[in-house]
Design a protein around this nucleic acid. Structure first.
Lengths: 219, 219
DNA sequence: GCGACTTTGTTCCTGCGTTCACAAGCGGTT
DNA sequence: AACCGCTTGTGAACGCAGGAACAAAGTCGC
């Protein structure tokens, strides 16, 4: 087992997840082999970079031939830990929360929402994505009962920190935050921030910059 | 005008957007001054890095005092181009699309959805976020009439590429894609990819790695 | 009016990620 | 059985982002 665990860089992990998605699609399409070039273009990355990413898993391709789709898929899935289903709780079932709860992409990647929570009584009891929304009061017991280690926050910004506190107090160790605030959590708890509008803002900036610099390819 | 345009790095642009959000909140709260340290902790970054980011805009603080909230806010807003409202079209009004259309955070940051489109006749005509969903047939004319340069794709993966093609053909130059596929677009068109489940996957990996390496802080 | 303190702006440096380019290895062919 | 082409895996250089330390500058107190 002890493959010396060479510590995979975070940027590589993110791309491995993309490769896994592409490979799953190829496998469903009946493909049995791929080259690094084809896989790279399907994932939108550089072929050399893809090979370097894969090298962190040890040799898993055949020179002169390429990679076996099913084998590589299982290899990546094993490293990412997709095989074992992970229990997640989702707090804040507004538009975004409902979208996340209903998104089929999570289930196929080993994530299972075992509890949807909202503070608004009007939303409690409503069925979203196949299960009923629970009141916040049940959060602690559900986390304790299911040993959920991942929490997703999709609440308004104002209450995100207090939700974060409740999640960590309940035992959640990893938090994905969609609310536009920087959360502070105790050491040992991983918090990742996703801000949907930041991406849009970067895109707008690049577009504006491009429009403002019409001469560039002149020479 | 020719401020020498020092080419701001993309990572910095993304953080500027975050600073802008924090500053707006501070201004609404009545604050008039901030130090780099306070602003950095509110944004979740290193103080030195924040000052370096701000240095791309030229001197905009007062030594010994800090930054004037309103001035800095306007300065960043100007660089990011938030002052001029940007017209966007959104294709795919499912759960995620509806969440995006309804998200107030976009409007306050200079983005205006001037058209919501969906291929499903059952969704056409339904009001989402204050406006009616339009059929795909109207896409070209709306883009042409409003000179929208930004398109957001929130469709299923299978149709994302064809939607991308239609958007670029209609004249959209910047595309934000939420569908889990790598899109190919002609040169001159910016495509940015956001995959919601990738973040979750990275989080799960880090948590698993942490759990598997219990001894670390021993010495 | 002068000194000391505070905070910015900048410079250097370290480390990481990405890319290019080459050697190693395997399959197919003659 | 040997050769050739193709593809992987790895080594090295490049560029970039991040962090720490230092100098400049302005304000407050005496």
């Amino acid at each position: 087992m002890s493959h010396q665990r060479p510590r995979i860089p975070e940027a590589t992990v993110a791309r491995l997840a993309v490769y896994l998605r592409v490979l799953t699609g190829l496998a469903d399409g009946g493909r049995s082999n791929v080259s690094s070039g084809e896989l790279a273009s399907a994932a939108g990355v550089n072929p050399a970079g893809l090979r370097k990413d894969l090298s962190h898993l040890g040799p898993c391709g055949v020179r002169g031939v390429g990679y076996e789709v099913a084998t590589l898929r299982d290899r990546i899935a094993g490293v990412l830990g997709v095989e074992r289903s992970r229990a997640c709780v989702l707090v804040g079932i507004g538009n975004l929360g409902a979208a996340l709860a209903d998104y089929a992409g999570f289930g196929s990647r080993g994530f299972r929402f075992i509890g949807l929570f909202d503070a608004d009584p009007a939303r409690v009891g409503v069925a979203v994505g196949g299960q009923a929304v629970r009141p916040m009061e049940q959060l602690d017991e559900v986390v304790a009962a299911t040993a959920a280690t991942i929490g997703v926050i999709a609440t308004p910004a104002e209450v995100a920190q207090s939700v974060c506190d409740r999640l960590t107090a309940a035992g959640v160790r990893s938090i994905l935050n969609f609310a536009p605030v920087a959360l502070s959590a105790p050491a040992g708890v991983d918090v990742r921030q996703v801000d949907l509008s930041v991406e849009l803002q970067v895109l707008a900036f690049l577009g504006q910059q491009r429009a403002a610099a019409p001469v560039e390819v002149l020479a």
